[in-house]
Design a protein around this nucleic acid. Sequence first.
DNA 1: CCTTGACCTGAACTATGGTTGAGGTTGTAT
DNA 2: ATACAACCTCAACCATAGTTCAGGTCAAGG
Lengths: 147, 147
Amino acid sequence: MSITSEQVLSVGDVAKRSGVAVSTVHFYERKGLIEGWRTSGNQRRYPRSILRRIAIIRIAQQAGIPLATIREHMKKMTNGPITAAQWNELSEAWRAQLNERITSLVQLRDRMETCIGCGCLSLGDCPLRNPEDALAAEGPGAHLLNS
Amino acid sequence: MSITSEQVLSVGDVAKRSGVAVSTVHFYERKGLIEGWRTSGNQRRYPRSILRRIAIIRIAQQAGIPLATIREHMKKMTNGPITAAQWNELSEAWRAQLNERITSLVQLRDRMETCIGCGCLSLGDCPLRNPEDALAAEGPGAHLLNS
DNA sequence: CCTTGACCTGAACTATGGTTGAGGTTGTAT
DNA sequence: ATACAACCTCAACCATAGTTCAGGTCAAGG
């Protein structure tokens, strides 16, 4: 065990306990997602609460939130342990985006299933086919359909 | 309108009608996702069915399938218009991955909602909190929790 | 004939989320 | 005291999914 106590963690301790690589801890610190302090010998030290922060970062990433957005949300929080109120604030914001992602994926799945059921690729009313046909019908103008 | 007919499309026609940029058509061709032929003057020409292929590529991307995987699946198809059977084969494969993504996002959302409801950040039984605590409880061994 | 827009290639650049390696320092155990 | 693991920085590199740009060619209309 390293000399770092239960309360103060080295970068290696953080990596082991959080499950991310040491290089990722460096990376998150460079990106302003986490913060710590340095020893007189310039080595990183973190409070134990950094583990919760990293867990939250990974959760947000699973929800599809980019790191830059996560950082903006996390900046509103204190450095110490995360309170329930802070967690509620974060998760509220992320839940909305998570729901959007889920909704659009479910819609896509449903449309794919409809398509399979109806064998509609040769028909004109396929919901998956329509985006393209709508364009073809409009002629050669600017279509702006990149989303 | 360009000289290219209803059946033969230039790269610009494809871009306009499919809604992707010309550079993206080039890119897809380089990556082996689409195929066409060249005029005597080395300009790209595509059959009209390329539009359906590009529509399918975008659908697969929305489902979270990486281009390399899309290419592998598309390689099994003929160059001409896509048949219902081919579409069924593709969508079967992608639906499975889409369902996995949806399932994991829904689980995440549900866990977040449970967390919000119970204010469990300070308790030991929070399903979102557990991954980290499990590690902390195990001590400093190798944890392999990167997934 | 000649201008102009669309096209060509190849290389470089963007952004995201990291990993890897070189070269040097710190810290702990023996 | 010294060896060895863990740490440091900075730069370069990886993959994914493209976009942009320079320098040159092609083709259609006036």
